[in-house]
Design a protein around this nucleic acid. Structure first.
Lengths: 193, 193
DNA sequence: AAAAAGCATTGACTTTGGTCAATGCTTGAG
DNA sequence: CTCAAGCATTGACCAAAGTCAATGCTTTTT
């Protein structure tokens, strides 16, 4: 239990056995069926979720009812509505499972206590969020500066697993496109080979 | 000296006088003239810069020589090429001054020593980067899910100072648009009032 | 096994943003 | 003070992405 989470933690900040045992007290396992919600808009986000197994997405819904995916999380990734989590304001994102999934949840209380009591947890969190920041900055840069074709190639190069496992119309949504447009871009790329 | 930086720090993590004095040893002041570079692509980014006064931008340049602004930093904000800073790989962004500016630099060595020696620094950094992450996520969400008009209104509502102080074609670049397009959007908004 | 739902693709057409060129205004350097 | 450069705006035209509708697969559900 928590194997993948602890492995991820140790790869960033080395823990002793006692520390591992200590942390386990603050973790909660959770299983989700495909299509099940982990978080719904207007709920208050009470956890950070680490994906042990499976796949999730975070998305917002606009006035026209259209979904816009802002993040995927596969094995080894973390997902949450951080703003809601930290401020206790209602969430602006929905999070649900794209496949049957196994998660490790860190509740808000657990998060705060761990920050207090285990400096290594703060270090782990800092490293995680810094990595997430850099990854998102790259995504943003690619959006404002690369042509669509590049962006799609980039995405498949960087996250081949996501492109394989996730339906194409969700990839389109993640890129801010209509499914038809992505389909046409793929055709164009295929034609060039 | 360092007044605004220390004030910002204290607002997030309260420091004693001794701690303040201690931190000052790790800081370097720097003045930049308008248009001067703080960092050029292919350099290795050796610092995090806190803006005491003035305005800067970070941008990338594409194959066609076009600039794409990925961040502005006014008073109280922090700017850097974090990826380059943390990995010592060549920077992918340029950073220069939009106005005469006064900065506080934290070198890589200083950053690492402060993380080691002063737990409050790690806390400060964690809070900063978390805030930056959330802000960027909002920007990203707005890009993939809102129509242009909304995005511009949002930007002026959220960062009126930036829109006032920065030339319009740079705002366009920040939004991933041509200057002409932004001009037309502004006209459209103005017409509705 | 049959029916239904979800998905990717394609075509025709519309809308939106980009490109190119010109104008007039403001700012800054010499 | 003058001239050049930078900037915002507009118009005419072009290219790219969105919309709507239809088709044929595949996957789920019953």
């Amino acid at each position: 239990m928590y194997k993948s989470f602890l492995q991820n933690f140790n790869s960033k900040v080395r823990l002793t056995e006692e520390e591992e045992a200590f942390i386990k007290n603050y973790l909660t396992p959770k299983k989700l069926r495909k299509k099940q919600y982990l978080l719904q808009e207007t709920d208050i986000c009470k956890f950070i979720a680490f994906v042990e197994k499976g796949a999730l997405r975070a998305y917002s819904v606009d006035e026209n009812g259209k979904e816009h995916i802002i993040q995927f999380a596969l094995e080894g990734w973390t997902i949450s509505d951080l703003y809601s989590f930290l401020t206790s304001e209602p969430a602006t994102y929905n999070i649900d499972a794209l496949e049957d999934s196994e998660l490790v949840l860190i509740s808000k209380a657990a998060h705060e206590e761990l920050l207090q009591k285990l400096p290594k947890y703060e270090t782990y969190f800092r490293i995680q969020i810094t990595g997430a920041y850099i990854a998102m900055q790259k995504r943003l840069t690619s959006i404002i500066s690369s042509p669509l074709e590049e962006r799609y190639k980039n995405l498949t190069a960087l996250y081949p697993t996501i492109v394989e496992r996730v339906p194409q119309h969700m990839i389109a949504s993640y890129m801010g496109l209509q499914p038809e447009t992505l389909s046409r871009i793929r055709r164009k790329i295929a034609a060039k080979k």
